[in-house]
Simulated assay, not measured.
Amino acid sequence: MTNNGSPGRPTGNEPLGSAELEELCAIIYARTGMVFGESKRYYIERRITDLMEASGAASVRAYVAMLKDDPRAVEPLINSFTVNETYFYREEHQLACLSRSILPDIIRTKKPGDRIRIWSMPCSSGEEPYSIAIWLLENWALVDAYNVEIIGSDIDTAILKQAAEAVYSQRSLSRLPDAVVRRYFEPEQDLPRRLIGDLRESVSFVKANLVDRASLSSLGKFDVIFCRNLLIYFDDAARETAVDNLHDFLAPGGYICLGHTESMTRISGLFEAARFPDAIVYRRAGGA
């Protein structure tokens, strides 16, 4: 393998040449907004080898041609390039901020029984949106006074199926207190553990792409959006599109939570920083 633009390790019956690498990266970018290039050659080669074998393509060139001719062939490609690093109660301080500061502010303009909509994306295998549901049951006394709707979305169709199944390993559960695991997961002698039915039904999962507005059109407005560790994978153009969509699908006065390395104030003037005791989050500017 080389990283200087020359063909790398063999993929199928030919090496992954610079032209094919560029075309593959362009397809991934067009569908996801995620930027890959020569520096990610080894990462790409490993995934393309398996995808080619599964598709029956005889060469890299034939596989690229298949991606261009058959939109159905692109879905496994996109699924293989998404990053699904997650576990329950990840960045717990933001969950604390949700129950102690964000929701108390949001319900100032709502009455008991009103709907509160929370969007988790990318939701990966479901740990994040289910964490929100568990946290609110455990830590927000008013959870039953409002109609809380939690939506999880991702562009990876395979991972969405895993999320709906809600079966988790010890690694996913490692941050949860034992009492919480016992309350919200089906009793099992061994791992993995499955989330109880009531909680599985409390979260809806949909395929959506933050840089493709058409895929978001049916989602409606949200009071809170968790969009953590996604914008870092975009270039400036894709990031601007993503942020515009986040703004448009966030209700006036709504909040967005980003990953700990991300800062909305460096990206857009559409949001203002909200500094709460537990976390710094972002509020849709101009909203009341």
Rank of each mutant, 00 (worst) to 15 (best):
I102A: 14
G197A: 15
A73E: 09
T86C: 03
V180G: 00
L16R: 04
E186P: 01
I102G: 10
F36Y: 15
F81G: 06
R228E: 01
D50R: 15
L98Y: 00
T11L: 11
P129G: 15
E20Q: 14
A158M: 02
V60P: 07
G152S: 07
L210C: 02
A141Y: 00
Q162C: 13
E240G: 05
T241Y: 04
T49G: 09
E186D: 10
G33Y: 06
D50E: 12
K40W: 06
Y255G: 00
W135A: 02
T82E: 06
A62N: 11
I132E: 08
T2D: 12
I116Q: 03
I107T: 10
M1H: 08
R90G: 07
T157G: 12
C123I: 09
G113W: 03
K110T: 01
C123Q: 06
G197P: 09
G259W: 00
I267L: 07
G269P: 11
G17D: 10
D235P: 00
L51I: 03
I78L: 15
F81I: 10
A288E: 14
A54D: 12
V243D: 08
H93M: 05
Q189N: 07
A214S: 14
I107Q: 04
A164P: 00
I28R: 09
N139W: 03
L136D: 03
R200N: 14
G287M: 05
L246H: 06
C123G: 05
T11N: 12
K68M: 05
F249E: 09
T82W: 06
P129M: 14
R175W: 00
G8I: 14
V60M: 15
F276T: 12
S263E: 04
S153Q: 10
A242Q: 02
L230S: 06
S80E: 15
Y282L: 01
G8H: 12
D236K: 11
D278N: 13
Y43A: 01
S169V: 00
A288H: 13
N13G: 11
E186V: 03
R283W: 04
P112K: 03
G197S: 15
A237R: 13
D69H: 07
L173W: 11
C97R: 02
S218H: 14
G113V: 05
P10C: 14
R9M: 15
A163M: 07
E262M: 05
I256F: 01
I280D: 07
I225V: 10
P7C: 13
R239K: 15
K161T: 13
L216E: 04
A163W: 08
S217R: 10
R283K: 14
A73N: 04
L24N: 10
L219I: 14
P122D: 08
Y130M: 13
A19L: 15
S204Q: 15
P71A: 03
S268R: 06
P187N: 02
A163D: 10
L258N: 03
R284C: 08
M121G: 13
D144M: 08
L137H: 09
F222L: 09
Q189G: 12
S39M: 11
E85Q: 03
R228Y: 04
D223A: 14
F271A: 11
E138I: 01
F234K: 00
A238G: 02
R228C: 02
V224W: 02
L77R: 04
D114N: 14
A208W: 07
R200Q: 15
K111I: 10
L136N: 01
V224L: 06
G56V: 08
L160Q: 07
